[in-house]
Design a protein around this nucleic acid. Sequence first.
DNA 1: ACCCTACTAGAGCGATCGTTCTAGACTCGA
DNA 2: TCGAGTCTAGAACGATCGCTCTAGTAGGGT
Lengths: 194, 194
Amino acid sequence: MTGTRERLITATNELFRRHGFNGTSLKQITTAAGAPTGSLYHFFPGGKTDLAEAVITSSGAAYQQLFELIADEAIGPATAVTDFFEGAAEVLEQTDFIDICPIGTVAREVANTNDVLRQATDRVFANWIEAGAAHFVSAGLSQPDANELATTLVAALEGGFLLARARRDAEPLRTAGRHIRRLVDATLDTVRTT
Amino acid sequence: MTGTRERLITATNELFRRHGFNGTSLKQITTAAGAPTGSLYHFFPGGKTDLAEAVITSSGAAYQQLFELIADEAIGPATAVTDFFEGAAEVLEQTDFIDICPIGTVAREVANTNDVLRQATDRVFANWIEAGAAHFVSAGLSQPDANELATTLVAALEGGFLLARARRDAEPLRTAGRHIRRLVDATLDTVRTT
DNA sequence: ACCCTACTAGAGCGATCGTTCTAGACTCGA
DNA sequence: TCGAGTCTAGAACGATCGCTCTAGTAGGGT
């Protein structure tokens, strides 16, 4: 039996994927985690916001780690992009199109109502972009170009999740991945010939 | 005084932009619209889902009309893309980063819990992609290429909204717009030289 | 004059929301 | 053995949720 704190975060993470922030109740969370309300408020005195912040931060770090793993195994940044989008598409199909990324859903729900969570989602996205940009820089891109490319990559990824889930078809995600790959290839070519 | 039905849809649209589907209550809606609960259930017998479906459909049609307007005024599909993203970025800045598109937010919230609304969001996205693809086809692209390009465009647009709102900075949206433009240009060049 | 339909108006339903609170169980150093 | 701190357990709170229901008003057709 893992710690109660971890169980609460894991359960909340999974519920957020299906129902989002406002669609998930603390009752659902405590039931799924097998933890009483008292424990929830013991580990997360700030209540639902506090717990959600922990979920966003830990989930963001986990995806970043996954991306680094895939990027390290790939031949170059271009194939890393394809691998990452392809992997996401497969997970989506295998899980009956349950949201892969709870952060994107929560981000749009709370951006205008809960500034603590808005900032938490912002930090996660900024970290992802920074991590992606670092790989592009080491492939020869300038820092500004790398940042912009990574920004569009994350945007296309999150937008791809949106379309794929609405359609219940992972194809939009693969399509976006292919286009981002073309964009990466084209930008790297520019550098090589200069 | 416009009709009650329209006022309900307008009020719900604006509330969805700020708080999403689950974050908006019927009490907020009836208060904002100045309409009693009885009227809401008169015009939308299916309740919240019924009303939300109308909001999604009408809002989706409105954005499509806006896109057609911009596309018609633009010189070609590439500038149309830039104009559209730039226009969205400006609106976002002027409205203190309130969500421009309630559909994207609702789509991720309900994709796994409310199939009626999931299908409504899917129809809207499909229409947008079809409309965008039509312009690319008349610029010379094949139908499959045009569909894929329009898919990535919508994905980058919705993902751009996500990043821009989280960061409270419209720059990610402009960046995504610039990259999509490059993608459109590159794809059109391929056609011209073949 | 009448009625019928369309719509307004909001009290009230049971259920559930996020949160607070008290009480008990377990661990471990003193 | 004791007390302090950590964590479990869940009853209970007021507020609010989506929705149902009854009653009343407005206006056009006959």
